[in-house]
Nucleic acid binder design. Structure first.
Lengths: 133, 133, 133, 133
DNA sequence: GTGGTCTAGACCACC
DNA sequence: GTGGTCTAGACCACG
């Protein structure tokens, strides 16, 4: 069932203001989405990855658990943790993430009484006003 | 000097995963941005709002303090807490909120290895996929 | 004992972030130091000044009490409150205030490990650095 | 990643008229500016410093939070609180402190109806007056 | 009456 | 172990 391909964990540059486990999940998600981490590949063991990234194993464990919950990884007891084989599951997960992010963005727009387009315009326009202060 | 308008605090539905004081600040920000809470209006006293929302006064105080620091509210000693009169400050704060929301959205896109346009397309065009289930 | 001269309280523009009684004391001190309020002149009654400035009489009372303590005013029971007659007392008070302000400034300098001259230079130089950001 | 240097908290002599958390922030700011507390050093834990100074942990936490907001400290979740590494941030903060101190000094001068130069002269040349007492 | 400070102590998230 | 949130309640400064 396991693929023989391997995966080389990228270097990390953690932002100390966000939870590590969350940033690690982002990294792995990106690796999967970009195709560098392919369906069916076996993930490094929690201990190995924790060693590579010089962090507490509990932190990596939490990352794996979260990625399992959103459907990117699956664990087989005694065998290890694998990238989910069915690409459709991954696509569905990406879709769920996209929808959630978009919904949150819409909520901010609504909370400011604006449309999403107005909000994007506001966020991306460079402040000309500041010039004459 | 103070406005005689009043404001009726909306009902709250706290999300247990985020700090109350933060969610309260979001609620008040929304009320201001939407025009329901207008510049110059006096806020309910810390004790009153704490009573209405059934929380500890310190929690409301923390919310008021944070909103004061980012320029939404101002306190007059012994008089109460007021929505800032200067609309420009509010506009500036809206800009900051917009930029933050947009940045978070961009980060999600990046973590999935997509552009923001691709992410928006994905989030808004899911009906096609559902057809073949 | 009382002078027949009178004093017309200036208009005030309170800064809502500082105690009123403190700002009022500043105003009266300035009036005395500038010669507009002369030694021996009888101050308005607490009620009158509170009426003129539209504030709580307790606030004016606190101001008078503080100015009495630093030697600018003196109260004669049943007669009212007067600007101290002896100019030397006022000069001494000014000196005390000056020394205290200067000492505080020196303490800040020391706390930053700088001389007062360096601190003044730092505070008054316009930031050239900011230009290239 | 963290520095191994340590820091011995100085003794404190609280002034009962000012908030403890504010005085604590002043103490720490002084320690940083004077070089006794160096960039990257780990601060004592909230609980430890509260024990050393015999105050409630919440009070120390408030100090740390405020110093974090103005850019002196930074927190790493589960790891502790550290003096910010970037010396530029500290220089900026020093500038802000200098400007504030100078502004307060100017305000005193204004409240006495004097220029800052006259105020400095008055504060530093009092020995002449004393001669004729 | 208003906001603000401080304490004591419980409970949680993170590493 | 770390910091962070929240509560309960006392006490103070201000107007």
């Amino acid at each position: 069932m396991a693929s023989n391909e391997t995966w080389k964990p990228p270097e990390i540059h953690p932002d100390p203001t966000r939870p590590l486990y969350e940033q690690f999940a982002d990294v792995i998600r990106t690796e999967i989405a970009s195709g560098r981490l392919r369906p069916g590949v076996r993930m490094p063991s929690v201990r190995d990855l924790a060693g590579t990234w010089r962090v507490n194993p509990n932190t990596v464990m939490r990352t794996y658990r979260d990625l399992e919950q959103i459907g990117f990884l699956m664990t087989q007891r005694g065998q290890g943790t694998f990238v989910v084989r069915d690409e459709r599951v991954i696509e569905d997960s990406k879709l769920a993430i996209a929808k959630r992010a978009w919904q949150q963005f819409q909520e901010v727009a609504q909370s400011l009484g604006m449309t999403v387009h107005e909000l994007i315009d506001l966020a991306t326009q460079e402040e000309v006003d500041r010039a004459h202060e």
